[in-house]
Design a protein around this nucleic acid. Structure first.
Lengths: 231, 231
DNA sequence: GCTAGAATATGAGCATGCTCACTTACTGAG
DNA sequence: CTCAGTAAGTGAGCATGCTCATATTCTAGC
């Protein structure tokens, strides 16, 4: 029993290894599941015993690298820098560290993101918990920088949208050293932090945790009856 | 010759009609191209003579509704409101108008967005020009509200990221009347407009049009050698 | 050892998006 | 009227992600 458990891990690893290689060589789409299974010396059915979908394999690869980056960053975060960094700098460093680890997967990142991106993604264990744990770290970083309150779900949603936007852009970034992506990240975070600060100043009294679904938003003037009415 | 041209349009329309119905009934994934072809009384091959891909059919449906909404909004924009609206209000009204027209496609919007979202999406005629024309309208709106300069590509990219984030959220929004989406839209635009104002005040001297790819961004401290180095 | 039962492996097969070699329908010139 | 030429239509077939009934391997109790 214990032997087979180790064997299972080995099989899983060989699948990931084969997939990593083939994805890198041929891209996500061109590498077929049959290819991956053959490279891992197993049958196709076995492959799908380990991963529910082809995308899940990629998600596992990305998720591993991502969480390793997050762990490393958390460790480096423990000893504070000599000139204390701003909130924006810390957030930038965090994401930049993730980008560096994710570089081998840059090209087929969107395929993983499509599932992982949406808040209502089917709770694919890997990708969903990825979003979750990332947002927790971000919450902590904000907290450490004097964020008196926990970030609202809406704030987290905004942050995540910006991050996925950066990642999607990155996947297609053809600037020499992907400098454009760094610029986009820089401005994304500047925008987010600015918004955090401003909205923190004039925080609504009532809604803290579920502030999103409370009442209708401000400017509805020209929008007419908004969404609710039938088209 | 002219007769057949009309016939072609009719065929195209019958495909769109069948697809609209089946997508609405069964969802994007469950409605097969064979189903659509049968409902449109044509062969599968014919269907793919009119649309390069199944997704393109959905994109055409969405694109039609989208541009109709944009046109209607542009028309309504010509006579300015009595109490002049703020930039944020105008942007909100614009997107809200689009959301209203897009409501029948809400559920399978992500399938269309995945292709349309990324800046480097294969220039699928419909979706790419959609992004383009939408951003042009946004530019005009900003201009009208005293935006002295044209929006930089980076600004447009940020805006588009936020909009696609709103749309992705909307597709999965289960709040009673999708109020959460409106709240998200509200805050997204507030954040964007706030950023526009701030970054306009302290505009960098050099980069106006291609400000994205000029030099390295500000906070790179903890990021180490950033992206450029090999992982 | 031997057998029952469980855990895992397997590849033939299915569903479906899409292609392509071929058919059909139509038009215009002689 | 005929016939070449062109535009549009067509469905058998392919590629591939994924399933499932079956085979294989291993463990445990005797």
């Amino acid at each position: 029993m214990r032997v087979t458990a180790e064997t299972k891990q080995a099989t899983r690893q060989s699948i990931l290894e084969a997939a990593r290689k083939l994805f890198a060589e041929q891209g996500f789409d061109s590498a077929t599941t049959r290819d991956i299974a053959r490279a891992a010396r197993i049958g196709v059915g076995t492959l799908f015993n380990y991963f529910p979908t082809k995308e899940a394999i990629a998600a596992a690869l990305v998720g591993d690298a991502w969480s390793r980056a997050a762990d490393a960053f958390a460790a480096a975060m423990l000893q504070p820098a000599d000139p204390p960094a701003s909130l924006e700098e810390d957030l930038f460093a965090h994401v930049a560290a993730i980008l560096r680890k994710l570089k081998p997967f840059r090209k087929y990142l969107p395929a993983v993101l499509e599932t992982s991106l949406s808040p209502a993604a089917n709770a694919s264990i890997d990708s969903q918990s990825l979003r979750q744990s990332h947002l927790e770290i971000v919450s902590q970083i904000v907290c450490r920088h004097g964020g008196d309150d926990a970030l609202t779900p809406l704030a987290l949603q905004l942050y995540w949208t910006l991050i996925t936007g950066v990642l999607a852009f990155w996947a297609a970034d053809s600037s020499p050293r992907q400098e454009d992506t760094l610029a986009l990240l820089d401005q994304s975070l500047a925008m987010f932090v600015g918004w955090l600060t401003d909205s923190g100043r004039s925080r609504l009294p009532g809604g803290t945790s579920q502030g999103a679904s409370s009442s209708a938003p401000g400017p509805t003037r020209q929008a007419g009856p908004t969404l609710a009415t039938r088209g």
